[in-house]
Each structure stands twice: as structure tokens, then as C-alpha cells.
Write a protein that binds this DNA or RNA. Structure first.
Lengths: 242, 242
DNA sequence: GATTTTCAAAATATCGATATTTCAATTGAC
DNA sequence: GTCAATTGAAATATCGATATTTTGAAAATC
């Protein structure tokens, strides 16, 4: 199972080859999406020469993109032995989920406390955009799934936009992307299977009502449900070593 | 004010050119130390060609090392405009300190709860090693300062070694290195000016007595004092733009 | 037969050269 | 005199080629 056609990197969406400022960014975004989408399997080796040819960039450009992905912990690198897609495990996902709940709730709390009119407007707008994408969501149509994922992220970011801590945003962002990869597995295998729209609505209402405790409780449950959705599947699923 | 001699990168300590597995790692460690030590000033431009010649490595090797420093947020990069040493600001340091207290205390709590005999032994050993370095500490002797910094880090890591969360360790580590850079400014300009040894001793005692609340309180104060030490200096200190 | 050694193929890391972009000073226009 | 356009120098990004290291299979040794 390989070949350029069956595993062709995603073409649409994201940064097109010419819309990106640099080729490094282009390679970075493309690789990242391919990893999050599972096109590049967890634990698999990332051979420079092969990828270089596939994405049509130079060797150092590709290496730099891979190094960039190291920050997101989506790839690992070892001494003289090249790069690999970061492995996945239940323990890892549980750890991510726990940390994410902590950081997301803290950020939300501060955002609710500090948010002004602009913040409220941003939340409402993001929720509306997300709702529209939900109506159009069709699991078989990848473009619609991507659009939903994008607006889902935007909604959650809008909620915490009022939080002023750079570092909190930074760490939360990393964990969000990590979660996204795990979530994709459950999205592909089952569906959502729960009323995510209602969950989002509840969080938004609580946030706008400036009820931080409720908003955090709901957010915590929201995140936990993602974990629960993945738990059912991810049992004894050894990533192919190559 | 430049030239290879006055601003020569640190030679001793750290990864020697041949002890590192790859040249990238060598460049990474050297650059990182130069940034943390303030040899490369906050906000200053990092010109590939100049550094390439200085460290005697190829252009892409150097770029990859710089990209690696992006993960630590010790360097910033912008589109087609190259790399810079990450700027410093009081707001940033306050943010770092707040997050660091949160993460460090959480990790310590879990470590105290889960730590076994091996953990206790590690803490005691690290404290002893640190004490020895304290006796030899001479602010004018850089090697002794480096040795102290190293063992200080080792001590704090030993305290939280019992905590099982990879991500907590990961984020805490980033913030620790960030703090180290700020702390160096105060170390150079004043001295410690407080009884750090006693503070460490108190934290260790509380940890070994499994008194998580006390240990966290003391750790929080410990971290806050570092902030207080820097506050006095870092006022209106515009980093030279080049 | 199992373990070590040798060797070739594959992959990584590294380099210096080139193309592209940014920056800053100078010129020209209003 | 101020603002915009031009243009050359400096710096970045990008590439393909080469050196070094790893890997795995075949040969040799015990």
C-alpha cells in the first residue's frame, strides 16, 4: 500500500503552493495536514528523499518543515536516524485531554472575566459560522469535514480570545492540534454520535452570561466526550512500524 | 562593537563540536546557550551568513538549528525576513512566571503523591549536589555559575520526577528555559541577594514529608522571588534593534 | 548452528552555490 | 520640502550534489 495516487497528499484547502509565503511554510502546512488526517500514519518513517520528491521541494526545505513540526510534537526526530510521525497511544491521549481541560478552562475563565463587546460579538459570529458548517456536514465529503473542523477551532478560539496570556494560548494551541489528530480517528470510524451543536450552544450561553463555573464545567465535559469517543476504538492498534 | 573575539560564542561546557551527535545539535546547543546567556541580545537579528561563518557550519544546518530554537520560543521567525532572538518584556516574564507556578506546582503535587523510594533518593542526591555547587559559587567565575545553574535545574527536575505527565514536563521545561534567560539578567547585574539554599531546603523537606500544600506554597514563593529580582532592573531597557 | 565481521546499498546530514526577496539610499516628480 | 519610483546591495530561501552514517544481508569464524 503506497504509490503516489492512493496516498497522494491533500490538494485542496489549507495553504496552496503559491499562497504560502515560503515553500517551507507550504511543506509545513501540507505535512501537518497529512499527519493530522492520518495520511501519514502514526509511527511511520518520514524519508526525506521520498517526501522531497512527492512535495517537489529541496531536501533542506523539507527538513526545515519537519523540524518545524517538531514544535507541534507531531513528528519526532532522532540523532542520525531521521524523522518519524509521532506515535499515538491511549496514555498519551489521556494526558493530552487532562492538560487540555486544565488550560482550556483556565483560558475560558479569564476570557469571560476580561471579554468586552468585541469578544461577545466574535463568539456569536463564530458560533453562527460553525452552525452553518454543521448543516452542511457530510461525513463522506471531506471538504465539508475540513470546513467544520476549521470553524470548530475558530469557535473555541473565539471563546478564549479574551484571555491575555500568550503562553496559555500557545500551549493550548499545541494540545488542540494534538487532539485533532486523535479525534479524526474517531470521526472517520464512527460519526460524531452526539449532539455537539447543543454542547457548543450551552458553552456559548454560559460564557455570554458570564457564568465561568458553568462554562468551564460544560467545556470539561465537552473535551471528555472527545476522549470517550476515541477510547472505544483505539485499543490494541499497533501502528505499522514503517 | 562586534568582531569574533568580543562576542565569541561560549566554548567550554555544553555540547562540544564533536561530542554532539550531529552538527545541527551542536549549533542548536551553542546558539541556545548564547541566547540564554545574553551573548545574543533579545530582539537582535540573527543573520544566517554571519552565524554560519562564526559557528563554521553550512547555511541549512544553521537554519535547522534556528528552527529548532523556535520550539523553545527563544527565537522568532517571520516569513521572508529571517530569524531574531525572541524579545523580552516584563509582561512576558510575568506571564511566564504565572504559568510556571501553575505547572510546576501541579507537577510537584503529583510527584509527591506518586513518588517512590527512588524518587526520594533522587531528590536528596540532587539537593546535595546543588549544595556543593553553591559553596563553590563565585559570580565572577562563569564556569561555577553554569555549574550551579545546571544543578539547580537538576534539583527542580528531581522534585517533579515522580509526575507521570509527559506534557506537563514538556511545557514546564520550556518555561523553565525561558525563565533562565530572564534570571541571568538579574544574576549578572546583582547577585542572588537572598537565601536560595534555605528556600530549596524548605521545599525538599516539605516534599519528603509529603506535605504537598506546603511544598507548593514554598515553590510558588520561590518562583515569585525570581520575578521580583528581575523587576527592579528590567525597566525601560530597549533591546538594540540590530 | 549461532555469532561476529565485512561490505554494499540506502538514508541522513551537510555543504556551497543560485534564485528570490527585502531593504535602504538615491533620484525624480509634484 | 515631501512623497513616490528606481535601483543596487544585502539577506533570505531554495536547491542539488556530496560526505557520512546506518542498516541489513552475505561471508567468515568459532
Amino acid at each position: 500500500m503506497d504509490g503516489a495516487s492512493s496516498l497522494a497528499p491533500d490538494e485542496e484547502g489549507g495553504q496552496g503552493r503559491h499562497s504560502a509565503k515560503t515553500l517551507i511554510e507550504f511543506a509545513y502546512h501540507t505535512l501537518r495536514r497529512d499527519i493530522i488526517h492520518g495520511v501519514l500514519a502514526p509511527g511511520s518513517k518520514l524519508r526525506i528523499e521520498q517526501l522531497r520528491a512527492q512535495y517537489e521541494v529541496g531536501a533542506s526545505t523539507l527538513r526545515e518543515a519537519l523540524t518545524l513540526l517538531l514544535s507541534d510534537a507531531l513528528v519526532t526526530a532522532e540523532g542520525q536516524r531521521g524523522f518519524r510521525v509521532a506515535p499515538v497511544s491511549m496514555a498519551d491521549f489521556q494526558d493530552i485531554t487532562r492538560m487540555r481541560k486544565l488550560l482550556e478552562c483556565l483560558a475560558l475563565r479569564e476570557s469571560i472575566e476580561a471579554g468586552d463587546d468585541g469578544w461577545e460579538a466574535g463568539v456569536v459570529a463564530a458560533f453562527h459560522r460553525l452552525s452553518l458548517a454543521e448543516d452542511r456536514l457530510d461525513r463522506k465529503d471531506r471538504a465539508s469535514v475540513d470546513a467544520w473542523e476549521d470553524r470548530n477551532r475558530a469557535f473555541h478560539e473565539a471563546l478564549i480570545a479574551g484571555c491575555g496570556s500568550r503562553w496559555l494560548h500557545h500551549f493550548r494551541g499545541i494540545l488542540y492540534h494534538q487532539s485533532e489528530r486523535y479525534r479524526r480517528f474517531s470521526l472517520v470510524n464512527r460519526g460524531l454520535g452526539r449532539d455537539v451543536h447543543a454542547e457548543h450552544h450551552g458553552i456559548m450561553e454560559a460564557a455570554l452570561a458570564r457564568d465561568a463555573d458553568l462554562a468551564c464545567t460544560l467545556t470539561g465535559e465537552h473535551i471528555d466526550r472527545t476522549l470517550a469517543a476515541v477510547v472505544g476504538i483505539q485499543t490494541g492498534h499497533p501502528a505499522d512500524p514503517d
